[in-house]
């Protein structure tokens, strides 16, 4: 009898807590969007942040620039590393060191990246607060994400594809370029999308490296603020919560959109993996 009551109770607790989890998400989303949406206007999205203008266009542009700069550095390096790890490496000391480095990079919190970027790129290399310093630091930060996701994608390519190509007399490199990489494209895309998500959401690194300047960026040596940094500055200054809510809403919409795309890609990968089984 008592077992049954205990079971029932636990069952109810499990369900209740799960819905609390879901509720938290809904709460955060609903709170920010209902408060922020009324303040979003065409003007807000398309003007700069100066004088009495309160627009976020410079921050949108900055975010885009930063994504492009960081990914054009980290994507080739990350894919190259993943190819080496999956296709070439043999068990041994070298590989252990590389793997340990990647795990360590993944575990370093962003404030440490910020501190490092500040000491190394901003001060030691004298880049100042700039896209160059921010982009370099962010590239290192997203490197583990790109490497691991690409690695998974490469590993998911059936061995039989490689054997088939090699048995036809194709070289290893040809096989990688013509057979393995095309099959792994959805996974590599997923890696890029995940990295974009991290770049959009990052704050701590950028305050130290890219800085918080409000104008439109004109060169790679300029300081600027991304949407997340803008939101942080608005929240910290506490001057205009309307703008903060509106900025947060834009950020949330972008995040949701990125999530939507990456889950679509993940679905494709699943289908591909299943289709190639027979």
């Amino acid at each position: 009898m008592s077992t049954r009551i205990k079971d029932r109770l636990l069952y109810i607790i499990i369900c209740a807590i799960s819905f609390i989890t879901l509720g938290i998400l809904v709460w955060i989303m609903a709170y920010i969007i209902t408060k922020g949406l009324p303040y979003i206007s065409w003007e807000f999205l398309t003007t700069d942040y100066r004088g009495d203008r309160e627009g976020i266009l410079p921050s949108i542009v900055t975010t885009l620039y930063l994504i492009i700069i960081s990914l054009s550095i980290s994507t080739p390096i990350g894919i190259g590393t993943a190819i080496y790890l999956v296709e070439y490496s043999k068990p041994g000391k070298t590989i252990d060191v590389i793997r340990f480095a990647i795990v360590t990079l993944a575990g370093i919190p962003s404030i440490i990246y910020g501190l490092f970027g500040y000491m190394f790129f901003v001060i030691a290399l004298n880049y100042g607060n700039s896209f160059l310093a921010g982009g370099m630091t962010i590239s290192i930060m997203v490197l583990p994400t790109i490497i691991r996701t690409t690695e998974e994608a490469l590993k998911a390519v059936p061995k039989s594809f490689r054997e088939g190509s090699l048995a036809l007399g194709a070289t290893k490199l040809t096989t990688i370029i013509k057979i393995v990489l095309p099959s792994a494209i959805p996974g590599i895309l997923a890696a890029i999308i995940l990295s974009i998500g991290r770049i959009v959401g990052e704050t701590a690194v950028l305050i130290f490296t890219l800085g918080t300047a409000t104008g439109f960026p004109t060169s790679i040596m300029d300081s600027a603020r991304t949407l997340s940094v803008h939101l942080y500055m608005l929240a910290k200054e506490g001057l205009s919560f309307e703008q903060a809510f509106a900025t947060a809403t834009v950020l949330l919409i972008i995040t949701a959109f990125i999530n939507f795309i990456s889950s679509k890609i993940a679905l494709n990968i699943k289908r591909f993996a299943m289709g190639s089984k027979n």
Binding site: L22, A235, A256
Partner: peptide
Amino acid sequence: KIFRPAIQLLAGIPSVIYGFFGLLV
């Protein structure tokens, strides 16, 4: 199918938004 994307979304929300929510709520 509802929970999983919701939790992925929770993972994707920038930390500054959590801070902002915490500050105001």
